[in-house]
Computed example of a mutant assay.
Amino acid sequence: MKPNLRAWLLSTSMSLLTGCSLTLPKTFTFQADVPENFTVTGTANYKPAPGETCIAPSGEAFTTGSLFFKPEQPKTAHQVEFKVPLTDDDHGCSMVLRGLKLMIEGQWGKRELDMSLASAGFSISDEPSAHLVANSTPPVRVFKRQCQWFFRTAGPKRFIRKILQCKALGANGEMAKPMIGGRLHRDQLADSTVKLVLSVAKEEEPAVGDNWVKFPQGWKRCMGEDLDDRDAFCLGNTTDFKNFKMPDGRDCTVYPNCTEQEQ
């Protein structure tokens, strides 16, 4: 190969590499501090950039695109993290982030199916915000939420199953609002960090209030009409109860202690 041709190819390659590095999309970092046996995955949703029309191979216009984020390993034992691009050109057109949907998975038992899901979401606002001072550190937005387990019985043998709900915390620390996430300003997102801090309520609650009665030893399952009554509403009857099964197969009369003698 002639020296001039080799030099031209090297120069062209360096230019291409430099061009690629300059076109990398800006991102923000999403972090989630999670309780034990919890994880968070995310789906970033995109829309065509202003003035852009996105055309699918079929020739039809489309208005949405998505990127899925599932950390293979947590950053620590109780933290997940991934970077979310503010733009997406992988669909053949220029798109901008319009929102981030989160799925919170909590594992309540040993089996793979012993889990429940809750969701949250962050919308992206194009309204101008208070801009950062030049050369200042990008902001960290922290959203504190609390999850709670709700128990119920299922099936003819009345096995315990659990449902996960996550909500915002009120001023006094109580669970207040549905977990709707929050709103983020686009002009403050580049190189910033959005952090979701999740905790779990200490006490579980019945998924259906008029199915259980609380005693000092724990919760007892109302009888209803008979043992075959799967709905088994209490309907004022707080003296007749029936047993149920823990996920490990134990026959129990009180939740969560199983028997009234256990502490």
Score class of each variant (00 low, 15 high):
D33C: 02
Q217F: 03
G173K: 08
T193E: 08
K101C: 00
R186T: 12
S119K: 08
R141F: 15
P74K: 07
K195C: 03
R221P: 00
L22A: 12
D229G: 12
F30N: 07
T27I: 11
Q146S: 14
Q188M: 15
A77F: 06
K2A: 10
C166N: 08
P247H: 01
Q261Y: 05
S116W: 07
T238E: 15
Q31R: 15
T41P: 00
D191R: 12
P128C: 04
T23R: 11
M246W: 13
N243F: 04
L198C: 05
D88P: 04
G181Q: 05
E204S: 11
A168W: 08
M95V: 02
L198D: 05
F28M: 05
K70I: 08
T153N: 08
F151H: 09
P74W: 10
Q73D: 10
Q73C: 00
K162W: 06
Y46M: 08
K245P: 00
T238G: 06
P3V: 00
K144R: 12
D251V: 14
V142K: 15
G65P: 05
A118M: 08
N45M: 10
T43A: 02
Y46N: 11
G65S: 14
N135I: 03
D89W: 04
L97G: 02
L5N: 07
L102F: 11
L235R: 13
E112L: 11
I180N: 13
A32D: 01
M115I: 15
W212R: 07
A77I: 04
K220P: 13
G42L: 07
G209W: 07
L22I: 10
A171G: 01
P35V: 09
Q79Y: 04
